[in-house]
């Protein structure tokens, strides 16, 4: 039996690396008495497959994980047990059985919705919306090459196609001068754009200085198919 779990990553959890998350999830599943299926071999490990990893520091409202089980279980009882078993870094949202031959999460999820809270200097207050408009009006946008000491340089990349929507949800708030932006970004095996990078592009287009975002939350991971958008849990019932 295969099960799909939807969970949240709280502020504490946002600092977990992907490996920390996998370890924490395995322990939680064990505490919830999930009959985990294990890989064969020298060092058996449970078969967990996560949707695209979150950057460190980013919280997540609806993250996903598929788990292979060795025997059947009652999903409702298991959901209650898992909710109790998760540590403060993680929050339970839902669990559903999925077909054995379901495609992997990374193969089907192609959109991510982010909320990004940013602060701007008072004199730049009026530059944010024009920056957003310029980015959306551009026909192509290039991400700068990334150089890291000791690592291979990631070449520049055209990313306009990954930017689906940017909405200014709120702001600027009178006192704090903060904006809240919603960004809908394409996800593909070919590449993805981080919300921080898009914020820098907006700042560059609006000609102001981008301070690192105050908070970033991935609100949803979606499947876009034939012009419609589904949550990964919705596809389960077909």
């Amino acid at each position: 039996m295969k099960i799909r779990i939807c969970y949240g990553k709280t502020e504490t959890g946002s600092y977990l690396s992907h490996l920390d998350l996998a370890r924490t999830m395995e322990r939680s599943l064990r505490r919830a008495k999930a009959p985990l299926a294990f890989s064969e071999g020298f060092n058996p490990h449970p078969k967990l497959s996560f949707a695209s990893a979150l950057a460190v520091g980013t919280t997540g409202c609806r993250e996903y994980l598929d788990v292979d089980l060795a025997s059947r279980l009652n999903v409702k009882a298991f959901s209650q047990a898992l909710e109790k078993a998760l540590p403060p870094a993680l929050a339970f949202v839902a669990a559903e059985e999925i077909r054995e031959n379901s495609k992997s999460l990374s193969a089907i999820i192609n959109l991510a919705v982010y909320r990004v809270r940013v602060a701007v200097k008072p004199e730049d207050e009026d530059k944010v919306i024009p920056g957003v408009e310029k980015v959306l009006a551009a026909s192509e946008l290039w991400r700068k090459p990334k150089e890291k000491p000791g690592k291979k340089t990631i070449p520049a990349k055209e990313v306009r196609g990954l930017i689906r929507q940017i909405a200014v949800i709120q702001g600027p708030e009178a006192a704090a001068k903060t904006y809240e932006l919603e960004m809908v970004l394409g996800l593909s095996t070919d590449g993805q754009l981080r919300p921080q990078e898009l914020w820098e592009m907006i700042a560059a287009a609006g000609d102001f200085e981008a301070a690192p975002p105050l908070a970033v939350c991935r609100r949803a991971l979606l499947i876009e198919q034939g012009g419609k958008r589904f949550a990964p849990m919705e596809g389960v019932r077909d």
Partner: peptide, 14 residues
């Protein structure tokens, strides 16, 4: 974001 293993400084474990 500037330190290695930031989880060291947060507590909140099970």
């Amino acid at each position: 974001q500037q330190v290695v293993k930031p989880q060291r400084y947060l507590g909140g474990e099970l």
